[in-house]
Simulated scan of single mutants.
Amino acid sequence: MTDTTDDTVLIQEARHWEDETWIAQVIKNEDDDGWAVSMTLRGEAEPALVGPWTMGRDKKNPKPLDAPAFHTLVKTAHEVRRRHEQQLQARLHKKIWIGSGAHEIVVTLDIVPDDDDPYAMLAARNAEGREVARKRVEAGFRLTAETAEAWLARELA
C-alpha cells in the first residue's frame, strides 16, 4: 500500500512501513534466528530504536507490520528520543543552590560539547536573579557545593 502526499510515496508493506516522520523496517536479527525492528527518524542515519520483533504463525518469518503496530513503535521511538534528549540536557546543564534565603545563590554549569574545544560556562545568580559571577572553565569541571563555594569565594573576594 502506498500513499502519495506532497509527491512523497509512503511505503506501507509487511517489512517496511513509513509515514512522513518515521521509517520502520523489520530486519533479520544478526545475533540469532529471530527478527528485529528498527525505527528511524527521516533524515537521520542511525535508528532511534532497534528491538526484537515477533515471529509469525509459521515460527520462521516475522509478523507483518501494520498500522497499529507502526503507531505503537512510533510512540516508543519518540519516548526513547525524548529520554535521550533529557539525559543529554541533564549531562550538559547542571545547577546547584548554595546559601539560603536572601543569600541563596544559584550556580549553573553549561557544557559546550565542541569537537575541537569543549568548554563550560560557570555562572552564579543571586536570589533576585542578577548574575554575580561568570567564568569559562574546562568541560570536565565537577560542579559540587564545595567547588561552587570555593569559586565564588575567589570571584567575590
Results as ranks from 00 to 15, higher is better:
residue 83 R to S: 09
residue 123 A to I: 02
residue 96 I to A: 08
residue 70 F to S: 08
residue 78 H to S: 15
residue 41 L to Q: 12
residue 80 V to T: 05
residue 86 Q to Y: 11
residue 143 L to R: 12
residue 130 R to I: 14
residue 30 E to L: 01
residue 4 T to Q: 11
residue 147 T to W: 05
residue 64 P to S: 06
residue 86 Q to H: 12
residue 93 H to F: 10
residue 38 S to C: 14
residue 155 E to D: 01
residue 111 I to V: 10
residue 10 L to M: 11
residue 17 W to P: 03
residue 33 D to L: 13
residue 35 W to L: 07
residue 3 D to H: 14
residue 17 W to N: 07
residue 32 D to Y: 04
residue 126 N to S: 06
residue 49 L to V: 02
residue 8 T to E: 14
residue 78 H to M: 12
residue 120 A to T: 10
residue 106 V to K: 11
residue 84 H to V: 07
residue 29 N to V: 00
residue 92 L to M: 00
residue 40 T to V: 15
residue 147 T to Y: 01
residue 106 V to I: 10
residue 78 H to T: 12
residue 105 I to E: 01
residue 76 T to S: 04
residue 13 E to M: 13
residue 87 Q to A: 14
residue 112 V to C: 05
residue 18 E to F: 00
residue 119 Y to R: 08
residue 147 T to S: 11
residue 90 A to M: 11
residue 155 E to C: 00
residue 44 E to S: 09
residue 15 R to A: 03
residue 66 D to P: 06
residue 78 H to W: 11
residue 26 V to P: 06
residue 140 G to H: 09
residue 10 L to N: 01
residue 30 E to Q: 01
residue 20 E to W: 00
residue 59 K to H: 15
residue 108 T to H: 00
residue 133 A to R: 09
residue 139 A to F: 02
residue 107 V to W: 07
residue 114 D to C: 10
residue 136 R to T: 13
residue 153 A to C: 03
residue 118 P to S: 06
residue 56 G to H: 02
residue 112 V to P: 03
residue 100 S to C: 02
residue 89 Q to W: 05
residue 149 E to R: 15
residue 51 G to L: 14
residue 95 K to V: 12
residue 39 M to V: 02
residue 14 A to T: 11
residue 2 T to M: 06
residue 78 H to I: 02
residue 97 W to K: 15
residue 73 L to D: 07
residue 95 K to P: 05
residue 11 I to R: 14
residue 81 R to V: 03
residue 107 V to G: 04
residue 98 I to A: 06
residue 42 R to D: 11
residue 74 V to I: 14
residue 89 Q to Y: 05
residue 54 T to H: 10
residue 114 D to S: 14
residue 28 K to I: 06
residue 128 E to P: 03
residue 143 L to W: 10
residue 103 H to Q: 12
residue 148 A to D: 01
residue 85 E to M: 12
residue 50 V to R: 14
residue 70 F to G: 02
residue 17 W to G: 00
residue 132 V to L: 08
residue 122 L to E: 07
residue 77 A to T: 02
residue 11 I to S: 13
residue 36 A to W: 08
residue 71 H to Q: 15
residue 31 D to V: 11
residue 60 K to W: 00
residue 132 V to M: 11
residue 39 M to F: 00
residue 28 K to D: 08
residue 153 A to V: 06
residue 3 D to V: 13
residue 28 K to W: 08
